[in-house]
Design a protein around this nucleic acid. Structure first.
Lengths: 232, 232
DNA sequence: TCCTTGAATATGTAGCTACATAAAGCTAAT
DNA sequence: ATTAGCTTTATGTAGCTACATATTCAAGGA
């Protein structure tokens, strides 16, 4: 980037600095984009891009005609990336392993249908599997897959390829729901994860849809000590 | 928006649909922006904005000269908003309450200094407090605040205003670290949260800096059953 | 006083041009 | 062969203009 022109990131950083240094306090109104552009000697479109970025990151709020204000109640906004489990394991330098525990077509319990936002509960494919890191348990997944939306899953050899990987590669979704919580390990879960019953385990529930059609819902139970990290 | 022109969101949606419908499979190369623009009858800048958005959301990857490819290993990318605890409680329609448990200037334990990426461990302000929802415990926070970076905190009446709220309003940060994990409640924590010892609790650790200077690190322990939700 | 209506205004978006930059690929010299 | 540079090319960015859209604000009428 040439030094004689301001990039929108430069503009963003300068505005952010002004806010951090309290030139503008929470709730304060910032000048119009056009005025800032003139002050900085750049085009309004450059200021616009900078402002959009600050708005996306939660620092300011913009409204047509209302102008731009520093958010009174800033939020901490982070990005959470959940990759394919195999990649997550391999990125730490560990050897990835995978083990199918069970695979059955079963009638769908009510709470699973509710998660999928389905009224009528048909049969779905239930897959339980274990992801391993360095030959030790890492994540236990309990999954239901819609055989209406993803009938091809029935032909996949799930003892070789994980449903996680197959779905992510073959059934892109348009919408998803993520929730994260903690549970205490019951006897069976503890056994499968090589943990102690009563251990606190982080759980990640994920449900995906294409349009209004449900694809899958998974409950991923992690081993004791597992941490979710975010990118800022 | 006028119907006779394509907005960049229209373009984005059409490209996304093409990818979802497997016109382009994972790993495939998409046409150049200019060609897509011509095909759609819009400007390259419009395609550029659409592509940027798809790139941000993790569906495609772009490289100068290399072109645009559908990501071979899609990630689930979610946005996590962590508001001020008071607002989080009030948004559910509950009555917010706050209770200071302890406030002391103490030498910093090694593991806290490490979290803050500090070598020399000076004294910091330690604040323990309880956030209440409808007069019942909601989140227990255990916080260390740097009195070098935020000396004003010593003059704040933390029995009235939570350190959470004061800091977020008065000490904006430039960088933060978030980690989420599960712990089993020990006797003391259980008592303060009105939980049972051994209950699995979701914990959110957050550390913030301005530049290289640490501001604060908090461990927020939630009540049993607490769920973190994300926006897609 | 209240409500409707219309004007004013700040941000949002689309299109165009020109140039910057990174990376891939080619060429030529060693 | 191997490498050092040069060229090509697709994306990235800045500037400009024109217009769209959402709100606010003020004026006017019941």
């Amino acid at each position: 980037m040439s030094a004689d022109r301001l990039s929108w990131k430069d503009v963003r950083d300068r505005i952010r600095d002004q806010i951090l240094q309290r030139a503008y306090a929470p709730g304060d109104k910032l000048p119009r984009d056009a005025d800032i552009a003139q002050e900085f000697g750049c085009a309004r479109s450059t200021v616009q891009r900078a402002m959009q970025d600050l708005s996306d990151s939660g620092l300011i709020e913009r409204k047509r005609k209302g102008g731009t204000h520093v958010r009174a109640d800033p939020v901490t906004r982070a990005t959470l990336d959940i990759p394919i489990t195999r990649l997550e394991v391999e990125e730490t330098g560990s050897v990835y392993g995978y083990q199918l525990i069970d695979r059955q077509v079963l009638p769908v319990p009510r709470e699973i249908a509710a998660k999928l936002e389905q009224v009528e509960a048909k049969s779905m494919l239930r897959v339980q599997a274990l992801h391993l890191a360095d030959h030790k348990p890492h994540i236990l997944e309990d999954r239901w897959v819609s055989i209406e939306t993803a009938p091809e899953i029935l032909d996949v050899d799930l003892s070789r390829e994980s449903a996680n990987e197959w779905l992510v590669r073959n059934k892109p979704y348009t919408r998803f729901d993520l929730r994260i919580y903690a549970i205490a390990a019951d006897a069976q879960t503890a056994r499968m994860l090589a943990a102690e019953p009563g251990d606190a385990l982080l759980v990640i529930d994920r449900t995906t849809w294409v349009g209004a059609d449900p694809i899958t819902t998974v409950r991923s139970i992690t081993i004791p000590g597992y941490q979710l990290l975010t990118k800022s």
